[in-house]
């Protein structure tokens, strides 16, 4: 199985990406740009994304795994990362992919990557024919609170002075940046994440969205936030399908295990929706 590491030009610098070219099939099955999740979640889910890309490429779908500006092996430092530029990165990656494979071009986003993908689709609707969401972040503010809490917990564990997410937010806007778990979080990026809300990012009616939500075995219903957003989108005529897969949150910090948590059922379901009915 071949894959090509490469650099492409983004709006603010060179972006690292890995391209999994489609294995030739009778029909062109298009291509997907993978939009990774935020900070440590990106590292935790790298294996899930790579193995999914491999499976899709075997089925004739080209996949580009993108590192956003200031993350992974792309240029720039995290503190120079901006929401607007990340949207531009995603659009640049789609432009690159269009030149590589025929068929429908789409976005595939995990967690914050899902939120970014929906906004990129709104910004460049003519380019995005399909979207795959894996456990998209519904509200940016909640995710950022969870991220800031990593620092609160670290301070708790060291027995240092206690911190709170509210105090950290104040320090962030006063200082312009904040160190959290090895990341220098810039204030403008934090503000943009805070403001991002999936409910306001309904897809165009001609763009099919497959939304996968990992759920526990004892209660395989969709979580309330996902149901609410679906209702808001469908009121605007969205072509949305929500799917539940039983499995653990593989993107979450797994401090107690060295091995990546994998959910093969999610790969199979994702391939099925992409390769199956149009």
């Amino acid at each position: 199985m071949t894959f090509q590491p490469l650099f492409l030009e983004g709006p603010t610098g060179r972006l690292f990406a890995i391209y999994f070219p489609p294995v030739p099939h009778q029909q062109n099955r298009g291509g997907l740009v993978y939009v990774p999740p935020f900070a440590e979640e990106m590292n935790q889910s790298r294996r899930m994304a790579t193995l999914q890309a491999r499976q899709l490429s075997k089925q004739g779908v080209g996949v580009l795994l993108l590192d956003l500006y200031g993350t992974g092996d792309s240029e720039g430092s995290f503190q120079d990362a901006r929401w607007e530029n990340w949207i531009g990165d995603i659009i640049a990656a789609m432009d690159w992919l269009v030149g590589q494979c025929g068929g429908p071009i789409g976005l595939w986003g995990l967690r914050l990557g899902g939120l970014l993908a929906m906004e990129a689709a709104q910004r460049a609707p003519e380019r995005v024919e399909r979207i795959v969401l894996w456990q998209p972040v519904a509200r940016g503010r909640r995710m950022l609170d969870q991220f800031l809490r990593v620092r609160v917990a670290a301070a708790m564990g060291k027995g240092g002075p206690s911190e709170s997410t509210n105090n950290l937010r104040k320090a962030l806007s006063a200082d312009g940046t904040l160190e959290v778990a090895g990341y220098t979080l810039p204030s403008p990026l934090a503000e943009a994440i805070d403001a991002a809300d999936l409910a306001n990012l309904a897809p165009r009616t001609n763009c099919r969205v497959d939304w996968f939500e990992l759920v526990p075995q004892t209660d395989s219903s969709l979580p309330p936030a996902a149901t609410k957003i679906a209702a808001a989108w469908q009121a605007e005529g969205a072509n949305l399908r929500q799917h539940t897969i039983v499995g653990p949150p593989f993107w979450a910090l797994q401090v107690w295990t060295e091995e990546a948590v994998l959910v093969p059922e999610l790969w199979e379901a994702t391939v099925k929706t992409w390769v199956g009915a149009r």
């Binding site: 909640r142 609160v152 917990a153 670290a154 564990g157 709170s164 979580p223 936030a225 401090v255 107690w256």
Partner: peptide
């Protein structure tokens, strides 16, 4: 398994599963 970092992950999972918001002073 439940160290301070795991508490963070656990709170996040509860927030998303039940669509509730946990304040810092409640932890």
């Amino acid at each position: 398994e439940l160290d301070s970092m795991a508490v963070v992950t656990l709170i996040a999972a509860l927030e998303e599963r039940f669509d509730l918001t946990v304040e810092d002073d409640e932890i």
